[in-house]
Design a protein around this nucleic acid. Structure first.
Lengths: 198, 198
DNA sequence: CAAAACAAGACAACCGGTCGTATTATTTGC
DNA sequence: GCAAATAATACGACCGGTTGTCTTGTTTTG
């Protein structure tokens, strides 16, 4: 097996484990050794793949959000369901996943925004990019729903996307400390079920 | 000076410094020594005042939220202004303070919910209590505004308080990474200025 | 064989927490 | 009301362990 491929596998494993561990214990609460042990990669190698813990964190952020964007985009492209229903279904699936994890972790973006969003410039940039990518997709979904007549037209899709995203982040925090999916369900019902409706 | 008084002063100083430092660097990002040096209190004393870093964190949380509750309650008791205006004024003041800090820190409750809200049971309990105290006050303010006819009656004050608090927390996270007060202003305008209005 | 990629482990700094001792307060005995 | 005894607090050196990073030697690659 060529080394260049092994390198990519190692990088991928580190990023996957980074998502899991940073989600569970936060940035400063996680030591590199813990991640390295989990995927059996020696410490010395780490700095060949990533220049620093901070750079690693920035890459983990992007690696984390990718699947969410893919999943939401897939729902929005389903031509047989309207956009609002697609978004609702997407969030229903997220809630099911959160319940499966017993409300631990929440959203890595939200957690890291709070912990290091204003102290690590590198991670801040990465968080900006990740949040914007997600927000823009949500916005385009809401705009599509507006065209389909299921979402009100007197508010901009941009404003609604921001409100939905912010409320969702806040609800995730509440979920974590209340160990209940009630906050996130309430959030979706209030916005997607009522406020945004045409 | 009796020792019992000095002890209370030291505790107070530690809690104040704890709020500042934990706000800026998070829980795991802050070492006890850093706090102790800032208020010139030896390490050994710390463990006479607080049993552990975790217990200290739980006390810092309560110490942090107290002034916010006092401030909001004071606004709500001003008899010459209606409740909705009082709430709006309160948030306007918060935004001014955030701008003064150049969008660093945000809300200690939100930051700690994300970082340790699901890993430290002691802090989780404290966060629950702090958030609930704050939420209940907001709810009573919104209920008062409903009685005064400025806020819609077809949604419960409880639901609106939750939505406002969650959106505010999310907007604070966005503020931190975007280094702009636009998200928090947008949040207040959307909810207090539009959605909640009678 | 030169250059690049990798891995082992050293490194100093720092972590939260403990411990014995010194100092000070408070209670007790008379 | 003073002194002795007891309790409470102050203090910082110190503990074992871990941190992120770097140096250095080895292995692999084209």
């Amino acid at each position: 097996m060529p080394k260049s491929i092994k390198k990519e596998i190692n990088r991928e494993n580190l990023l996957n484990q980074g998502v899991t561990t940073l989600m569970g214990q936060g940035y400063h609460g996680t030591g590199l050794q813990e991640i390295l042990d989990a995927v059996n990669i020696p410490k010395g190698s780490f700095y060949n793949y990533f220049g620093s813990k901070e750079n690693f964190g920035a890459e983990v952020i992007q690696h984390y959000i990718d699947p969410f964007i893919t999943q939401l985009a897939a729902h929005l492209q389903q031509s047989e369901t309207d956009a609002l229903s697609a978004i609702q279904l997407y969030f229903t699936e997220l809630i099911a996943e959160l319940e499966k994890n017993q409300f631990k972790g929440g959203c890595l973006l939200g957690n890291l925004m709070g912990e290091i969003g204003d102290t690590s410039e590198v991670c801040q940039k990465s968080l900006q990019s990740a949040v914007n990518r997600y927000r823009n997709l949500l916005q385009s979904g809401l705009a599509k729903a507006q065209q389909q007549g299921t979402v009100r037209l007197d508010k901009s899709a941009e404003d609604m996307a921001d409100l939905l995203l912010n409320s969702w982040q806040g609800a995730l925090l509440r979920m974590k400390i209340e160990k209940s999916s009630a906050p996130v369900k309430q959030c979706c019902n209030q916005l997607l079920g009522e406020f945004f409706r045409a």
